[in-house]
Amino acid sequence: MSMFSHPFMVYALLGGTGIAAACGAVGFFLVLRAQVFTGDALSHVAFTGALAALAFGVDLRIGLFTATIAVALLIGALGRRGRADDVVIGNVFAWILGLGVFFLTLYTTDRSGAGNGSGTVNVLFGSILGLSSSQARTALGVGVGVLTVMLLIARPLLFATVDEAVAAARGVPVRTVGFAFLAMVGAATAEATQAVGALLLLGLLAAPAGAALALTDRPWRGFVLAVGLAIGEMWTGLVAAYLVPRMPPSFSITAVGTAAYAMALMYRRLRARHAAPDSSAAALPALRRSTESVGLARVTGAPSDATPLA
């Protein structure tokens, strides 16, 4: 019996493709800006937004989208120049989670019999195989929308990411672009969280983009690769989950992504060992060089707040 004769598989593939495309595109820039934590935090914010909507009896999706986009913009406003700061994110989202538990208590005490665990678990872990026809179409629509906006702002955003000071000096609206990007992160997070769960979201944000940046130094190739990898991982994971029914799809998709990321890292280390010493440079300086050759920016020092301390 063919896999496509099950409607739930068709819906999962449709919706999953849209979500994977949006997450791949957004994730590429999140990784480039060293901001994956933002996506992680927003997926937890979605949990609070959904619970707040439930507690007040509003449509769940309104709560989700409002909460994630609002907090995304708030985090951007508290950081500098529309960039989020790790510690600010940590503080905001730890408190938002506390609020989430508060709403959970409100919800479960107000409506007795609503059951504690199951609803929350669905918000956190969502089920891609449980998508309905309309949900799948919404997911696909939101995914295409986010991808389109990302393509529109990709060029100035890349410039602002690689060299913020020079971009600002050349008249790129660094702050506005940063906020537009964060709003897209919020929208992608809200859609992905309610459709496939917060868990899968992080895997789709970080793994394909990380792999793409390990495989290529060129920004556009990396962008396309991240989106392609995300969609490919989604499909592979779904097929694997279909073939092994005991395996939850969230696990199989994330596992495929992790494996691809690990292989990309190994590939880069091998290549670095075989190549001349000077070409073993990290991805970001190489990216700087390649944007320079495109005529986008001149090389200046790395932004101090992004420097790792490990």
Partner: peptide, 27 residues
Amino acid sequence: RDGAGGGAEESALTGVVQAFTLACGML
């Protein structure tokens, strides 16, 4: 890794580690 570009990589790496451990928990 240290050095320029390490921040982006650590960010991606941390995200992947978190997603994978949570997925294992789910399993």
